[in-house]
């Protein structure tokens, strides 16, 4: 059974060009949900975005839960529950229904992060059991 835990981060909504020019601390993982929205996971909590990024709505986000999976786990537990094509490049963000639940996948070359909104955590783990 997957153990989904809160994945804290920062969520920023801004003009697409401003997000393109955004600079974040080294080691941070940036998930581009949409052209005008990002979710950033910092290696250490509490780090802020750079100053040139003032025209934005920036908020701490604790509403996501997730877990890191090995590629074997991804293939064995998750891929069969996805009715759409996963991207081939790495790293890549994929968003859509996983086992009928809205979820997100951050695909790195050696591992993957499965994310979903906290209220769906129980349903998603049940369906991926």
């Amino acid at each position: 059974m997957l153990a989904l835990e809160t994945i804290p981060g920062v969520r920023a909504a801004a003009d697409a060009a401003a997000i393109d020019g955004m600079v974040v601390a080294e080691g941070a993982v940036v998930l581009r949900f949409a052209p005008d929205e990002v979710f950033i996971m910092f290696p250490k909590p509490g780090r802020e975005l750079n100053e040139g990024f003032a025209q934005a709505i920036i908020a701490r986000e604790t509403g996501f839960v997730g877990c890191w999976l090995t590629l074997e786990e991804l293939a064995a537990r998750v891929v069969a529950h996805i009715d759409w094509a996963l991207p081939v490049e790495r790293p890549a963000l994929a968003q859509g229904l996983v086992a009928g639940v809205p979820a997100k996948l951050w695909l790195e070359s050696g591992r993957a992060l499965l994310l979903c909104a906290a209220p769906y955590a129980h349903e998603l783990t049940e369906r991926l059991r």
Partner: peptide
């Protein structure tokens, strides 16, 4: 199954929309 091509996410089944 009907699918829609989302410019942000790619080709997805209609039930996602």
């Amino acid at each position: 199954m009907p699918e829609l091509d989302c410019p942000n996410c790619g080709l997805r089944p209609i039930e996602e929309f």
